[in-house]
Design a protein around this nucleic acid. Structure first.
Lengths: 151, 151
DNA sequence: TATTGTTATACTCTATAACTATA
DNA sequence: TATAGTTATAGAGTATAACAATA
């Protein structure tokens, strides 16, 4: 009458459980790979946001990333120390600090992308080409619905 | 020559990026859903581990979950206060506290599974039945490789 | 002496709130 | 007075290390 393996009612089979647990594991492994660049996933998220849109104020970035503005400050501080972003005062409104990617930042981002692709190879080693493609596409749909970057 | 949209080299298209970011979002949404049960995702992880295997010592659980033994103590404390688990001294080795699910714990776990299924409906609303199935299966393969629960 | 569980402590991450400069 | 950015502070979460009980 009930499920074979216990009382969870198949919790481990749900998308929510699998995405949540896998996301944590994959995030940790990605963090380990970018550690040598002195970056953490949130820094990469900020770089990605900058790479995808026009240079933006820190408040706009905070809204895009869904984090507090004060966190953008510390992320940007760190990235500025690395020479990956630069802050430019908006001459029309001198309160605004517009963040822009530097060449160094683009280079770092490319390095992170390469690390992610290498990690993909490890992760998907046992999937068929077709499974990989459907997986990538389906995750893209979910990401788009969640308002996350997709391209 | 280069990618159209920027310098990320398609970072947002990688499995690693999508799993990491989606995992965080989905984890937060799941956390919001189980908040009213006074549970957090880590508690559900511990309940799930208990539901799937024989009752286990706290050190074994820590290894299974990949967290510090001291964290299992605080998780188990909380679950014990909720009446979801009970600690029983192993009579053969009185140092060991064997954790076991109670009926209340099984009930809570079933509630969490229902929340996860409801979240799945929201998440996968725009996927075809076939996409859902391939997604579930592919994530199951990845989860198994990562040593996570799959059934 | 080694091991299990627990407690004490410290560190990381992030948000909230207070503050400064500009509008 | 309102807004952008910054700084200060506080809380949650988790790991490390010291400790107690048992083997």
């Amino acid at each position: 009458m009930n499920d074979v393996k216990g009382s969870g009612g198949g919790l481990p089979q749900t998308l929510a459980f699998r995405l949540g647990t896998l996301g944590a594991v994959v995030g940790d492994r990605f963090a380990g790979r970018i550690e040598s660049y002195d970056l953490k996933p949130k820094h990469v998220g900020l770089l990605t946001a900058l790479d995808r849109g026009a240079a933006a104020s820190q408040q706009e970035l905070a809204a895009r990333l869904g984090v507090a503005p004060s966190l953008v400050v510390s992320l940007a501080d760190h990235l500025e120390r690395l020479g990956a972003v630069e802050r430019v005062r908006d001459p029309r409104d001198r309160r605004r600090q517009v963040l822009g990617l530097t060449d160094r930042g683009r280079c770092l981002l490319a390095d992170c992308a390469a690390e992610a692709r290498a990690l993909d190879e490890e992760l998907a080693a046992h999937l068929t080409a077709e499974q990989r493609e459907v997986l990538r596409k389906a995750l893209g749909i979910l990401a788009a619905e969640a308002g996350l970057p997709t391209d």
